[in-house]
Amino acid sequence: MTTFTYVIQDPLGIHARPAGQLAKTAATFADCDIKVSANGQTADAKRIMGLMKLGAKQGHTLTITCEGGDEAAAAAGMEAFLKENL
């Protein structure tokens, strides 16, 4: 299991568009189970509605957990996406 945290920089937080892109990015790691937690809630990173429902805003800390095949690559991919877009 690989875990890392990320603090949201985007003023709008995880709004619809980045949630969609995040889900698409996560989906590229088919064999890896990726979870995103914020504010005591956890969502499957491959599901846009769940990600949106986290209600994560600027300044909130996301905890990303990758488990399963290729988890190191998945974690690296997710981290790169977050830094780029959120």
Partner: peptide, 16 residues
């Protein structure tokens, strides 16, 4: 267009 694009993603969402 983005609003509609998000709708497409919602329609493919596994929870939904």
């Amino acid at each position: 267009a983005m609003i509609l694009d998000v709708q497409m993603m919602m329609l493919d969402d596994l929870d939904y």
